[in-house]
């Protein structure tokens, strides 16, 4: 894959909470995401990876390993402490998207990326209709024709199997699975080249989980979107992702093809993770 230009290239991305000292800045002192001297938490510690066109990249790890922080930082919900990221669809991948203005960051959020949060409350306006939730992205992209926006919302919501008759309802009246579907349609509103999915099936029962995952897979095949799927559920990663990153204490400890990671794990943590399936 070396000669293929990645859709998203992340280099040495760090997110830390705390003052940080010279020891932890050097990186050698940090253990399990925390500096023993200044107690700064390194939620992400010099993370680097590539996301290739049409690829589903899985990220697994234990709770607190930095998976969700990684997605939130990429979606600009959280400031990064240092690092670089290049998006091929933004100024041909020449500009570090962590250093652009907040207006430009908003442009990327609205045009070039979609995000599906673990908790639908984070991604949806619960007191607005489903149609308005999808339209929010279109409005942010500058569309000022209500009829066109409604058409687009109907198309996307029916695509994720939300009945058109219910688009005027508010998502707060929906089940968790239905709310996730509305979130997915909202994230897809402007045909973003990159979709970030944060534990989308957590809290859903098995049959709904399977339907949501099938839906995501179907959308990915139809639209060829590159996706980053974060989960602590290895069966979700096995089903969805082409490549997988394993995270521990804010670092990537193993990276490779999903089958390779799950069948023949090298790192001790990955081995524990794979063998701790119930």
């Amino acid at each position: 894959m070396d000669n293929i230009m990645p859709v998203l290239a992340v280099r040495n991305m760090s997110v830390r909470f705390g003052e940080s000292c010279e020891y932890c800045i050097k990186g050698c002192a940090v253990e399990k995401g925390r500096c023993p001297y200044c107690h700064t938490i390194w939620a992400l510690n010099k993370v680097s990876f590539n996301l290739y066109p049409g690829e589903i990249l899985g990220i697994v790890g234990e709770s607190g390993s930095g998976k969700s922080t990684l997605l939130k930082a990429l979606y600009f919900d959280m400031e990064v402490s240092c690092g670089e990221a290049y998006l091929s669809e933004y100024r041909e991948g020449r500009e570090n998207i962590f250093e652009i203005s907040s207006q430009q960051k908003r442009y990327i959020r609205n045009h070039k990326m979609g995000m599906v949060y673990q908790n639908p409350v984070m991604g949806l306006r619960m007191n607005f209709s489903n149609s308005a939730n999808v339209a929010e992205k279109l409005i942010a992209a500058g569309i000022r024709n209500a009829g066109n926006m409604t058409q687009r919302a109907e198309y996307l919501l029916s695509h994720v199997e939300v009945p058109v008759s219910r688009i005027k309802e508010e998502p707060k009246n929906f089940s968790g699975g239905m709310q996730q579907r509305v979130q997915i349609s909202k994230a897809l509103a402007n045909n973003p080249p990159v979709l970030l999915l944060d534990e989308v099936t957590t809290g859903l029962d098995l049959s709904v989980q399977a339907r949501v995952l099938d839906l995501i897979k179907k959308i990915q095949l139809e639209l060829g979107i590159s996706m980053i799927v974060v989960s602590h559920d290895l069966s979700v990663i096995r089903m969805m992702s082409d490549r997988t990153l394993v995270m521990l204490g804010g670092r990537i400890v193993e990276e490779g093809l999903t089958d390779q990671i799950l069948e023949d794990p090298i790192h001790e943590f990955t081995q524990t993770l794979v063998h701790s399936l119930l």
Binding site: S102, F128, S129, A132, A135
Partner: peptide, 22 residues
Amino acid sequence: RKLHAEAEYSGIWLRLYEGIVK
């Protein structure tokens, strides 16, 4: 204030759209 500075008025437009939908 930040939204004004960036002329980011999507939320206002969204309220108008919500009325049209409902």
